[in-house]
């Protein structure tokens, strides 16, 4: 076994490190993809502005922490969730409800155009407001420097034996996990969550039992935007933030929801983790170091293509 690992990817601690790093970023991918899944399953549209909600989330945190230095990072993350929720709700009411009410010809094309439009508007508004220069917030917390042998920390990094794990990512993943837990509780343990699921399964039947599908549409789009905003809010201390930072993040979300199964909540959770780990292992183990990082996105897309070939509905998708 050890020989196999050594042949494929160096040492076991190295392999473990790659997997852990993949899981850390994968949790955040899952959070973002869950938002897109929610929008797709309830509104039956693909939001092309999802990455921009992610971008807005990061900028809200930056703005709050830049102007009010005493505000704790978690409060800024919460505010980012509120702002992105509100943007999502207002946009859905103004631009997507006419589609749901049948007031728009060619609703499918309309949805694509209007969400693309929102993406451009948000990108260029933020470019105007924040400028093109990269922004970043300080780490939400620094580790105290301790050394317990196997467990060691520096300001920035947690060492598990020989495996260093970035503190900022650990923190981001923990917040993302809490948000995911809260969202799953909401979806599976509350009346409103059940109402959302009911609308996603059959709008007319849901309406018959007293659920207002239009309100559920608004809630789903706002929640979806909020989840993307949360993902951005926790990652703005990890990556440098620019107005077009949402574009690659959005592309990953599309891959995840198709990989996991369009409209499937467990699918988006598992899909995010798979994508994170595959990208990490691919980059870390690809035989040619020169091209490993450059092929990073390719590794995820290869898995994506294979899953589609074997199971076109995705890992947890409903039968077509």
């Amino acid at each position: 076994m050890e020989w196999l690992i050594a042949e494929a990817c160096g040492s076991f601690p190295y392999l473990l490190r790659l997997i852990l790093e993949g899981l850390l970023i994968g949790v955040i991918y899952s959070l973002m993809a869950l938002g897109l899944t929610l929008i797709f399953s309830v509104l039956n549209i693909v939001s092309f502005s999802h990455g921009e909600f992610y971008m807005i989330g990061g900028y809200v945190v930056y703005t709050v922490l830049h102007h009010f230095k005493q505000v704790p990072g978690l409060v800024a993350v919460f505010l980012a969730a509120v702002v992105t929720f509100l943007i999502g709700a207002v946009f859905e009411r103004l631009f997507l409800q006419p589609m749901a009410k049948g007031q728009v010809d060619r609703p499918n094309e309309y949805a694509i155009l209007v969400t693309f439009g929102l993406a451009f508007v948000l990108q260029f508004v933020m470019l105007g407001l924040m400028g093109p220069f990269p922004k970043k917030v300080p780490r939400f917390f620094s580790f105290p420097e301790i050394d317990l042998g196997f467990l060691r920390t520096t300001r920035t990094t947690l060492f598990l034996g020989k495996i260093p794990l970035p503190g900022s990512r650990i923190f981001a993943a923990i917040i993302a996990l809490i948000a995911l837990g809260a969202m799953l509780y909401f979806m599976y343990r509350t009346w409103t969550g059940w109402a959302l699921q009911a609308v996603s399964q059959d709008r007319n039947a849901a309406a018959v039992v007293g659920i207002n599908p239009l309100n559920m549409n608004t809630l789903a789009f706002a929640l979806g935007g909020m989840l993307a905003g949360l993902a951005g809010a926790v990652l703005v201390s990890v990556f440098s933030w620019v107005p077009w930072v949402g574009v690659p993040a959005s592309a990953k979300s599309f891959v995840i929801i198709v990989l996991g199964g369009m409209g499937s909540i467990p699918g988006s959770l598992v899909g995010g983790l798979i994508l994170g780990v595959v990208e990490s292992l691919g980059t870390g183990c690809w035989p040619n170091p020169a091209t490993a990082q450059a092929y990073r996105d390719v590794f995820g897309l290869v898995i994506f293509a294979l899953v589609l070939l074997v199971k076109p509905t995705g890992l947890f998708g409903r039968k077509l």
Binding site: Y14, L24, I25, E279, S280, L281, P289, Q293
Partner: peptide, 21 residues
Amino acid sequence: EIYLAEQGTPDFAALVSRIVE
């Protein structure tokens, strides 16, 4: 050793791990 990356890449965690190794 040369390690190439695309311009605009935000996430370098795995590449950093590779270089650390």
